[in-house]
Write a protein that binds this DNA or RNA. Sequence first.
DNA 1: AATGAATGAGCATTCATTCAT
DNA 2: AATGAATGAATGCTCATTCAT
Lengths: 214, 214, 214, 214
Amino acid sequence: MGIAERRERERQMRRQQILDAAKKVFSAKGFSGATIESIAEEAELSPATLYLYFKNKDELYASLNMKMLEVLKQKIEGVYQKKELSPEQKITALAEALYQVYEFDPLILINVLQFQSSEALRNLSPQLLEEIKTDSARALRTIAKIFEDGMRDEQFVQENPIALADIAWSLFGGLVLWEEGKRGFDLKKNYLKPTLQLGFEILRRGVKRQGNSG
Amino acid sequence: MGIAERRERERQMRRQQILDAAKKVFSAKGFSGATIESIAEEAELSPATLYLYFKNKDELYASLNMKMLEVLKQKIEGVYQKKELSPEQKITALAEALYQVYEFDPLILINVLQFQSSEALRNLSPQLLEEIKTDSARALRTIAKIFEDGMRDEQFVQENPIALADIAWSLFGGLVLWEEGKRGFDLKKNYLKPTLQLGFEILRRGVKRQGNSG
Amino acid sequence: MGIAERRERERQMRRQQILDAAKKVFSAKGFSGATIESIAEEAELSPATLYLYFKNKDELYASLNMKMLEVLKQKIEGVYQKKELSPEQKITALAEALYQVYEFDPLILINVLQFQSSEALRNLSPQLLEEIKTDSARALRTIAKIFEDGMRDEQFVQENPIALADIAWSLFGGLVLWEEGKRGFDLKKNYLKPTLQLGFEILRRGVKRQGNSG
Amino acid sequence: MGIAERRERERQMRRQQILDAAKKVFSAKGFSGATIESIAEEAELSPATLYLYFKNKDELYASLNMKMLEVLKQKIEGVYQKKELSPEQKITALAEALYQVYEFDPLILINVLQFQSSEALRNLSPQLLEEIKTDSARALRTIAKIFEDGMRDEQFVQENPIALADIAWSLFGGLVLWEEGKRGFDLKKNYLKPTLQLGFEILRRGVKRQGNSG
DNA sequence: AATGAATGAGCATTCATTCAT
DNA sequence: AATGAATGAATGCTCATTCAT
């Protein structure tokens, strides 16, 4: 048992070592720009070895994104857990949390967001696809619960909470990609933070029930 | 003179013929999946001919997107022009207009949105890049004016109108890509329309000044 | 007749205009590097027009070289004509004359020399090939006559004068190409002139009959 | 250890196998005429495999030429080593040795000589360029030493021995290319051997100090 | 005479992936 | 478990040349 355990532990370490290398390379060169060979080099392994841990390039990419997805999921859950915050405050906190994820590793986040709607999705193995789906759904579900809570308190307007979560998530993803794109044109400043805050502020105000006007 | 005119007309037609073919192929296979040869085949021309009209694959792709960008710009301006609508109503109308663009050609729209944040942007000729930039900026500016009008009427909260336009645009782009992505997982129904409407409804409510509460 | 003459004159001018452009471009980029389009551009004509004056790229190149060959031929004949010079002095003068040709247009001369042994020779039209052959033969023949004169005077050893001409010509061509090649390695100085002089000095001494030794 | 050795041996064999194929194809079709695919086919390998052994087409060509350069170098050194020969006799022997190299593989020799002054030189890796340069320089140096020896013995006139070596080498290269070129015109006989012998005979006589005349 | 337009044919190079060892 | 070696399959792009007008 000890041996099997050690084996497994070593295996996981190798896997992580590859993911770390992949992260560097994908971030620096994008999906098509990154070659298996360059990743292998970065990981100080042979290309063939990568295939012992990942079925193909797409899955390696996807696995990498999974990690980011998990970070996202945890951050979101972290916000939801904060009992001292009202649903409204949680929306504000969510913006902050998501921005922290961006700051933590902008390039990988962008990769994740681009990946979500890319052709590469179709080449994944069913298991991995399922895993991503489950994780995403769970993250979305957590956001939805914030809205649900607000509705239960009669603080928020009655709307489909999942749709609201989609909106919040899309707003975040859209802003990240759009700001990134704008920097493709110009190399101007990055306005993501204030815009994101404003966006979520609008969102917060938009879902809030209002006194007697409407 | 007649000859020169005819020449020019024919030239434009060829160009369009290529763009039509490219649209089909890019939509079906994505940017990397589409080969120059397949596009040429679709256009019933030789690959070399494509290079008489477009500098390279990236520029062909970009030109295609330009067309969509123009459609977007016009639709947005169409909404802005409607004098009978209040700023608030224009926001609702904007959601509708944008959805029509989506419906008109979902795949190209998705391409445009993906393109905005892709690596391909860097390979474009400065002119084309400038053109795209200008067009995007103008479209955004028009959206911003809707918000400005609302602020001037004291209907809307005072915020940076360009930032609000970025938010509206990102919400739209984010939702389109996210719904597309979800369909990569499941092949379920497409909830874009209602979600988009709800998103803009929230946005509308969010920017609206409120009676006396905050 | 006046009209036909003018036509012909104009035709020759166009031809020359193209040759001038070709010279520039071939010199700058070498044979494979130069494209018909770039030459046409330099000549301010369309690529198609070039084909009205030259059968193909090879023939254009060859015609260009022909011009240089003519210059060479004339220079060589100029040396031969100088009645005041002894055969020995003519050999020295030949080195000088050939070096002047090199100085006049090094790149085209190098092209000519490279062309002499290149694959391109095989694509030429029989007429042009014949023309080149005739011209070369004539130039060689003139050099040979210098040696013949020296032999007749019993100044030079009795050897096949054509072979001696081949040797003189090869020495010149070999040195030009070899010095050019050395400059491909290093960008050092160009030793062509003194080496060429020395080479022909050796040649002169080598063909000279000697007192009583042998 | 045995394994690593075998690996290395096999690797060298593969390399040689490719060089052999390249030699055939380059000789038959010249540099531009030869395609990587045709060479790969001749070597019974895939094109991609060639790139595991040679960085690109230019380097493959250059490596091939390197082999010939080595043969040349050895032949030349072989002549220099012959203690029983006087410097004068070595010049005669050099002509013979160089002709043997020609006979051994005329086409590759022609390639080498053409390569020396070609544009391809510029695309080589610095190492390879250096290697070629070193080898050439060494061969030239050896020729120069023959002349030096003759000068030391007061048999030869005092001239820069390196310049004399350049002259001998250029004479050889020039003659080979010129005779090759002449065969491009006519398919007549090949006069290289006697002309080369005569050329070096003249050279020998030309560098020899003479009794009391000048 | 001149050319705008079109193209056929080509080609070096890349890279994800496999497999014997 | 790890990898050196091999490759199949692609693909964007170039360019000499032709021809209708």
